[in-house]
Amino acid sequence: MSGRDTDASVDEDHPLSAGESLALIERQQAAAQRRLGVNPALFYGPWGVAYLLGFGSIFLTYPTAVPVRLPGQVAVVITGVLFAVATVIFVVTGTRVGRGLRGPSRGAGAMYGWSWTLGFCALAAVNIGVTRLGLPDDAVTLLWSGSSLLLVGVLYLAAGALFQDWFQYGLGMWMLVSGACSVFADVPGNFAVVSLAGGGGLLLAAAYFALRPPCRRLRHERDRVHV
């Protein structure tokens, strides 16, 4: 096979020095990770906005020290729209990231994605079931906000363990603490906690990933090849 002739026709094949080779490896590795992965800011940002503004708007429907009052229906619409948008972005981003790939990582990613759906379906079933017994309104409110944040926290812990990502694990712990605190803040303080601590935490996480240099983004210990 006259491989040399074929090589000569490829303009990229001028001989590289060792330094050029290492630089090329680093560039290519960063580019591949950036294009194959997804910036976690895309996952955290929309949820952070939904938590901050959605639960923030619900907080403002109560008479509080804040001199702004929102009608209940407005808050429900704001929260519903923001959560729907965040869900769509989450599903679309999660689906696109696995495009053209198959193998163990894809399977693990799909299972993790489904654990959000399954978890929240089960949470809704449990909460509705308990509410049926006739809980006071405030208890129902606290049950939903507290249990939702608890589940979010646990799922971030799972992601941290799955992807060997301490940052995500730490975010999970923060969400667990926020969820527990929200219940003790009573109504409507729970909405302030979920909005500011939960949403604020997610937005800080999004900002961290958005502002991180691209080459460091998504650099998990996925293989043994290190540059």
């Binding site: 790939l101 193998g103 894809r106």
Partner: peptide
């Protein structure tokens, strides 16, 4: 290098 960024066993 691009293929090596995939986890072992991924295609």
């Amino acid at each position: 290098v691009a293929l090596a960024t995939l986890a072992t066993g991924d295609q």
